[in-house]
Design a protein around this nucleic acid. Structure first.
Length: 562
RNA sequence: GUCCCAGUAGCUCAGCUGGAUAGAGCAACAGCCUUCUAAGCUGUCGGUCGGGCGUUCGAAUCGCUCCUGGGACGCCA
């Protein structure tokens, strides 16, 4: 589509005596909202001033002059010049392009030789894997795939929340009320109960908080008892998490969490001191950000222990040393926007030019009854159970609709998990979403299974056709044209998803492509034996290529039958 | 109190850097399987785009302001 816009712009430029550059013209060109109006449109409002003529008049004069072999007709429609493309030629061109490039269709090379580090997923040890972490995991995974399609090398770091005062709290809680048996049997559940109990008790007995801080200090200093409890909690939690990652088909290049940076804090503090950025304030040590009108960043607590920001600074320095990243992308909830703003500014004050290439990709919360879910109060929904339920539901659907399907288990997993991932990615990531099992487990309408189903149907046609070599001579009908136009938009959609770091662009695109194809499918008999059959099959093949690739970019599998 | 998000159909949301009659899905109702998978398709119903002012030939889109909801604001992460 982009190159057709450029052709249109060139033709316009040649027929216009104005000081508009080709680039100006290109940016004015748009797609008519209603496809009956044409394929490309040029509004003449801005020309009205320079020519001192009514835009309608300019449009009709222009429409008569414009010609190009790829234009079927050019018509004036009020103040717009609308172009109808030569369907057969353009569609042939697009079909052939997709068939030749296959899953590389929509790829770019702009990222070659550059590393992008993703900080993604990052669940907290000793807490259940929440719906919020699902968002980070799924968005991060998709963005990494998108970025790789642009040629970048993506490095996914799971910055585990395996350090911090929370472990002091857990140790205190375990020593007071813990039961080794129980923890061994149901680690996550039991540890969560202890955590929740701690917060409940601490409300009446604030000295517990002091104890927790003391235990965390001991942990940081290498106290043996603290260390072994910590390690135990961590191991049990990781076991649970890996089950979920397996179901989601997600992996990481590094699991270096916060604890990993424990011995790298000294360097950060030394550097901050050297640069004269560290100041004492109310007993703690901070970096002030007054010049940006922001509150100071706390680096060291009054008891000398480090904080979240300290560890993130250490992590940033380490990652730049280790990966020489071109960009660092943090996929973390939008509640932490201030923290990242501060983090990046502190690095900038430290004189690192790469701090400007760090970006926080925030996302909205999962709400329960209109409020943020809080682990501290035990208000969590366990992801693993949700996924299992989705797979079970998908299985029931298969038993009902396609009982003879070969690899039911595998397909059920792809569809169930696909529904959950797609549900998370289809909307703009900054939107808050109300947690709703019902919504997540829908398989009809704008859902992942809808796209997967479209793919499976298209594959089914190709199996029946039983051809191996596809070749398109182009198609001339309105129904296939809508599908072809969607195919044309794929590369641009990929690019926009990268520019906006927004996987939902691809999800929405896939819904539109699926819808266009399903309409086509219901109207036109593809396997009808006539002169255009081969071209129709080429179109179907192209659709399967793009659907599969698009789903892949979201981290969703595409079963060929369901 | 200060700052950051958001407010579009009964519900969940699209609406690209302002442009032609504001679009989907769900729900409700009415249709379509002796022909390529009905997890699909077609149609009906449904909107003062939170309110107001402004910029513009043109505003759901940009600016200001108010209202509502959510979030963040130094020893949690």
């Amino acid at each position: 589509m982009e190159h057709l816009k450029e052709i249109f712009a060139t033709v316009l430029k040649d027929n216009l005596e104005s000081d508009l550059t080709e680039k100006d013209i290109l940016s004015l060109i748009e797609k008519p909202k209603i496809s009956e109006q044409g394929d490309l449109a040029f509004p003449c409002f801005t020309l009205a001033k320079t020519f001192k003529k009514a835009p309608q008049l300019i449009a009709s004069e222009l429409a008569n002059k414009l010609e190009h072999p790829l234009f079927d007709q050019v018509v004036a429609n009020g103040p717009y010049v609308n172009v109808f493309l030569e369907k057969r030629q353009v569609s042939r061109e697009i079909h052939e392009k997709v068939l030749q490039e296959k899953d590389a269709y929509g790829s770019y090379t702009i990222g070659e030789g550059k590393n992008i580090v993703f900080d993604t997923s990052s669940p907290n040890i000793a807490k259940p894997f929440s719906m919020g972490h699902l968002r980070s995991t799924v968005i991060g995974n998709s963005l990494a795939l998108i970025v790789e399609k642009l040629g970048f090398n993506a490095i996914k770091v799971n910055h585990l929340g395996d350090w911090g005062t929370q472990f002091g709290k857990l140790i205190v809680a375990y020593k007071l009320w813990g039961d080794e048996e129980k923890v061994r049997n149901q680690p996550i559940k039991e540890l969560l109960d202890l955590y929740v109990k701690f917060h409940a008790e601490a409300e009446d007995n604030p000295s517990l908080d002091d104890e927790a801080r003391a235990w965390f200090k001991k942990l940081e200093e290498g106290n043996e008892e603290a260390q072994s409890l910590w390690k135990w909690f961590r191991d049990e939690s990781l076991k649970e998490f890996s089950k979920i990652y397996e179901l989601l088909n997600v992996d990481f290049d590094s699991y270096s969490g916060e604890a990993f940076y424990n011995d790298k804090m000294g360097r950060v503090i030394d550097l901050l001191n050297e640069k004269g950025l560290l100041e004492e304030s109310e007993g703690a040590e901070v970096v002030k950000l007054d010049e940006y009108d922001l509150p100071p960043t706390l680096i060291k607590k009054k008891d000398g222990a480090t904080l979240y920001a300290t560890r993130d600074l250490a992590a940033a320095l380490y990652r730049q040393d280790e990966y020489e990243f071109d960009q660092a992308i943090y996929i973390v909830g939008h509640e932490q926007s201030l923290h990242f703003k501060q983090l990046f500014l502190v690095l900038e004050k430290m004189g690192y030019e790469w701090a400007k290439r760090m970006v926080h990709v925030p996302f909205g919360f999962i709400l329960k009854d209109g409020k943020k879910m809080s682990t501290r109060k035990g208000k969590v929904v366990l992801l693993e159970e949700v996924i299992k339920e989705a797979i079970e539901l998908a299985k029931n659907n298969i038993d009902e609709k396609n009982p003879d399907l070969a690899n039911k288990e595998e397909v059920a997993q792809a569809v169930g998990v696909g529904a959950i991932i797609f549900h998370d990615l289809k909307n703009e990531r900054l939107n808050n979403v109300e947690f709703s099992l019902e919504e997540m487990l829908k398989f009809e309408g704008s859902t992942g299974p809808y796209v997967q189903y479209t793919f499976a149907r298209a594959c089914s046609i190709l199996r029946k056709a039983n051809v191996t070599e596809f070749e398109s001579s182009g198609l001339n009908d309105e129904d296939s044209w809508e599908v072809t136009k969607m195919l044309m938009n794929f590369p641009n959609t990929v690019l926009r998803s990268y520019e906006q770091l927004e996987p939902s662009n691809i999800a929405k695109y896939l819904l539109n492509l699926s819808q266009a194809f399903n309409k086509y499918y219901s109207k036109v008999k593809i396997l009808n034996d006539d002169a255009d059959q081969m071209s129709r099959l080429a179109l179907v093949k192209a659709v399967t290529i793009v659907l599969k690739e698009g789903l892949r970019l979201l981290g969703i599998r595409s079963p060929e039958a369901m």
